Lab assay of single mutants.
Amino acid sequence: MPVRRGHVAPQNTFLDTIIRKFEGQSRKFIIANARVENCAVIYCNDGFCELCGYSRAEVMQRPCTCDFLHGPRTQRRAAAQIAQALLGAEERKVEIAFYRKDGSCFLCLVDVVPVKNEDGAVIMFILNFEVVMEKDMVGSPAHDTNHRGPPTSWLAPGRAKTFRLKLPALLALTARESSVRSGGAGGAGAPGAVVVDVDLTPAAPSSESLALDEVTAMDNHVAGLGPAEERRALVGPGSPPRSAPGQLPSPRAHSLNPDASGSSCSLARTRSRESCASVRRASSADDIEAMRAGVLPPPPRHASTGAMHPLRSGLLNSTSDSDLVRYRTISKIPQITLNFVDLKGDPFLASPTSDREIIAPKIKERTHNVTEKVTQVLSLGADVLPEYKLQAPRIHRWTILHYSPFKAVWDWLILLLVIYTAVFTPYSAAFLLKETEEGPPATECGYACQPLAVVDLIVDIMFIVDILINFRTTYVNANEEVVSHPGRIAVHYFKGWFLIDMVAAIPFDLLI
């Protein structure tokens, strides 16, 4: 008679799926529990143990900040960024110097990925580790590398530091407007667009060049630039800015003055950032001319202004700041037409079709709590990747769950009947059967004279019903998954307890 339990259901295979997918890609990662103190490590794979030199037993239950890997060259700011990422709910990448158990130093890129439950609360953290440099290539500990984003994938490793954006290309926007319009339909740009040429040739750093990471940081200074100062900065030398009595002219307006920039070969870094931020506020060169004239017309309804409409929906549905990093990277690809469009465009503009998908598509409701890094690593669709929660398995109709209350009560009843059979069957065979043979035949009273025979008949009927119930009862397979398919249940029961239950259900007393 089957006594099969499996009270692990309803099970959740999400954690096993993450481990299996990460292991298949030869990654070095740990999984931490966000619900406990210090976000203790609950799993670390073999790749991480080989990377740091510690065994799994030495890593388990330690804080996922990996303070046991810190050393003299470990930056405090990087460690603080990892700790801050564990307090938030967004994906974050941090470069930090770690030390192995043998004392060797290596520069590592740590990717902190939160995993949320159905309520939107962070319950786990996945920390992925990628070695960037070994100890002989690690720089000085005073050099802070965590304020910069990861290198873009479309640049060669040897040319990542030679990417320079020439400031004269930004200063000569109005001069290039006529050349853009003359391109017409034969050019790649839309009317009114501004073409910015980027020099990728390796050259020595000069005062006129600005690194790509500095251009990325310009967006942080746009908020500090007032509207009046932006307007004066875009007017140009024809209309000098008016300053109040006793007030000095704005240095932001002076930063885009061609006369002032041409007199000296070098520009201050602050002026460069502010000038680029001011130019980015204009949607095209037409807006710059309109600002000089004193009238700013409404933005025209053409394809170039609607190019950012799908980007707005993608940004609203993005799951991490990696989408913004990807957008900034692609927006700086050289030799393309940049349409400086305000994100607050007309909502009635139709979304044009684009061959290049900048932001990841909208994630469906079932995966809105899973970050983009987890979705990318697992390579699963929205119909396959579940949320991290207890999910009731989908069972067929008329199927009994093996952990249901009805099955528990039924098993206790069958257990009592088995005990009765084990006690009274030998007793009936030894004593009652002998008395029946010696006594007179009682054929007239039937079952009324033999109450134990009636009980034995009921017990046999219950055993037959138990066999039928076992054909529709779920079970737990070797992978700790609840199986509810009727065919698989029948095959599993035939290979197991079916023969024993059938022999126990045969009414031998009635056959004798």
Rank of each mutant, 00 (worst) to 15 (best):
284 S>K: 07
60 M>P: 01
89 A>E: 14
26 S>T: 06
386 P>G: 13
23 E>Q: 06
276 C>P: 11
64 C>W: 01
140 S>T: 08
62 R>V: 07
168 P>S: 15
312 R>G: 11
273 R>A: 14
364 K>P: 04
206 S>Q: 15
203 A>P: 15
144 D>V: 09
77 R>W: 13
126 I>R: 03
80 A>C: 15
278 S>D: 05
142 A>L: 08
364 K>F: 06
248 L>F: 14
324 L>V: 14
370 V>G: 04
198 V>K: 03
52 C>Y: 05
236 G>C: 04
100 R>W: 01
64 C>V: 09
336 I>Y: 14
188 A>T: 09
153 S>C: 07
192 G>S: 05
16 D>W: 13
55 S>K: 13
99 Y>C: 01
14 F>W: 14
329 T>P: 15
343 L>K: 05
22 F>K: 05
122 V>P: 12
15 L>T: 06
362 K>T: 12
363 I>N: 03
62 R>E: 08
142 A>E: 14
60 M>T: 01
241 P>H: 15
221 H>M: 15
152 T>S: 09
209 S>A: 03
6 G>N: 15
202 P>V: 01
290 A>Q: 04
296 L>V: 15
176 R>W: 03
161 K>H: 05
149 G>R: 09
331 S>H: 10
48 F>P: 01
180 V>L: 12
91 E>H: 11
215 V>S: 15
119 D>G: 06
179 S>C: 07
243 S>F: 05
326 R>T: 08
374 V>Q: 01
351 S>H: 15
20 R>E: 09
145 T>V: 15
56 R>V: 01
289 E>R: 08
128 N>I: 09
23 E>P: 01
258 P>T: 11
345 G>L: 06
110 V>N: 01
88 G>R: 14
332 K>D: 14
116 K>M: 13
34 A>Q: 05
140 S>R: 07
220 N>T: 06
266 S>F: 07
188 A>W: 01
132 V>K: 13
59 V>S: 01
57 A>L: 07
377 V>H: 04
101 K>T: 01
20 R>F: 05
299 P>C: 12
67 D>S: 09
104 S>N: 13
222 V>I: 11
164 R>Y: 06
242 R>C: 14
15 L>M: 08
41 V>W: 01
179 S>V: 06
104 S>W: 01
348 F>T: 15
379 S>Y: 06
286 D>E: 14
143 H>T: 11
280 R>Q: 14
359 I>P: 14
190 A>P: 07
378 L>H: 01
9 A>Y: 15
317 N>I: 09
114 P>T: 01
238 G>W: 15
297 P>L: 09
362 K>F: 08
81 Q>I: 09
379 S>F: 05
201 T>M: 04
338 L>F: 09
283 S>F: 07
318 S>G: 11
327 Y>C: 15
86 L>K: 01
355 D>I: 12
66 C>E: 01
243 S>L: 09
185 A>R: 06
377 V>E: 03
307 A>L: 12
73 R>H: 05
375 T>R: 04
274 E>M: 13
117 N>F: 05
210 L>G: 06
151 P>V: 13
175 A>Y: 03
153 S>V: 04
315 L>A: 15
338 L>W: 05
36 V>M: 15
203 A>L: 06
102 D>W: 01
346 D>I: 10
223 A>K: 14
240 P>F: 15
6 G>D: 07
303 A>D: 05
314 G>H: 06
268 A>Y: 12
64 C>I: 09
240 P>V: 12
304 S>L: 12
278 S>Q: 15
166 K>T: 06
307 A>R: 11
9 A>D: 15
244 A>S: 05
305 T>F: 11
244 A>N: 14
372 E>R: 10
187 G>K: 04
162 T>K: 12
14 F>M: 07
213 D>N: 01
5 R>Q: 08
227 P>E: 06
150 P>E: 12
40 A>I: 06
200 L>A: 15
31 I>K: 01
33 N>W: 03
99 Y>D: 01
378 L>W: 07
136 D>R: 12
205 P>I: 06
379 S>G: 04
336 I>R: 14
377 V>Y: 03
180 V>S: 08
118 E>L: 13
334 P>W: 01
48 F>E: 01
23 E>N: 06
331 S>G: 08
284 S>F: 07
357 E>V: 09
270 T>R: 14
216 T>P: 10
287 D>N: 14
7 H>N: 03
321 D>W: 13
131 V>T: 15
384 V>S: 04
315 L>C: 05
128 N>Y: 06
11 Q>H: 13
181 R>V: 09
140 S>E: 14
73 R>D: 08
56 R>D: 01
